[in-house]
Computed example of a mutant assay.
Amino acid sequence: MTDLRRNPAEVIEVANLAPVAVLNHNKPAAYLISAAAYENMLEQIEDAALTKIVKARQGGKSVKVNIDDL
């Protein structure tokens, strides 16, 4: 907490894309991640959700479509 209070920008810069554990009395109180790491995590969660949908729909009914009819 002390380092974070003194210079939060430096803590974030040093961490780069890695999470930083914020300790309070030597116990994790929170985890700090960069905006880029957070956005990457959200994309991975979205991809996992889409993968689940695709797997659930595999083997289902299909319809042949002629591209010229579209």
Rank of each mutant, 00 (worst) to 15 (best):
P28S: 05
A30C: 02
E10M: 01
V11N: 00
L17E: 08
S62H: 10
V63Q: 11
A48E: 03
K61S: 11
E46S: 10
T2E: 10
A21N: 06
Q58Y: 06
I33D: 01
A9W: 03
D3T: 06
A29V: 04
K55S: 14
M1F: 07
V63N: 07
G59T: 11
S62W: 09
D3P: 00
L50M: 14
E46W: 04
L70T: 11
I45L: 12
E10G: 03
N66Y: 06
V11Y: 01
L70A: 13
D69N: 14
L50H: 12
N7M: 02
L17S: 13
I67K: 14
G60Q: 14
N24L: 04
K52M: 10
V14A: 04
G59Q: 07
M1E: 08
A36P: 06
L23N: 01
N7R: 02
A21H: 01
Q58S: 13
R57V: 12
M1C: 06
I67Y: 15
K61D: 12
L23I: 02
M41G: 13
I67R: 13
Q44E: 15
R6V: 00
L42A: 14
K52W: 05
N16T: 07
K27N: 05
A15Q: 00
V20C: 04
E46V: 09
A37V: 08
A18T: 00
Q44F: 09
A9V: 03
I12H: 05
I53A: 08
A48H: 06
A48L: 10
A18F: 04
E10N: 04
A15R: 04
I12P: 00
G60N: 06
Y38T: 03
A35L: 09
N26K: 10
L32H: 02
Q58F: 09
L32Y: 06
Q58P: 01
A15K: 00
N66C: 05
L70E: 12
A30G: 02
P28E: 08
G60H: 12
E43C: 08
I45R: 10
E13L: 01
N26V: 05
E39F: 11
A30W: 04
H25P: 00
Q44T: 12
E10L: 03
K55Y: 12
G60R: 11
V20L: 04
V11A: 01
A30S: 13
N16G: 02
A21G: 07
T51C: 07
E39G: 07
Q44I: 08
M1A: 14
A29K: 05
N40S: 15
V14D: 01
I67V: 15
K27A: 10
P19Q: 05
N7G: 04
I33A: 13
Y38V: 01
V54A: 14
L17R: 03
G59C: 13
I33M: 15
N24H: 11
R6K: 11
A21R: 10
A49S: 11
D69K: 13
N26C: 06
N26Y: 08
D69A: 15
E46R: 13
M41L: 15
T2M: 03
K55N: 15
V65A: 12
N16M: 05
D69Y: 11
L4I: 05
K27R: 15
V11T: 03
A30Y: 04
T51I: 09
A48P: 01
E13M: 02
L50P: 01
I12C: 06
V11P: 03
Y38N: 09
A49R: 14
A29L: 07
A18D: 09
Q58G: 06
D47E: 08
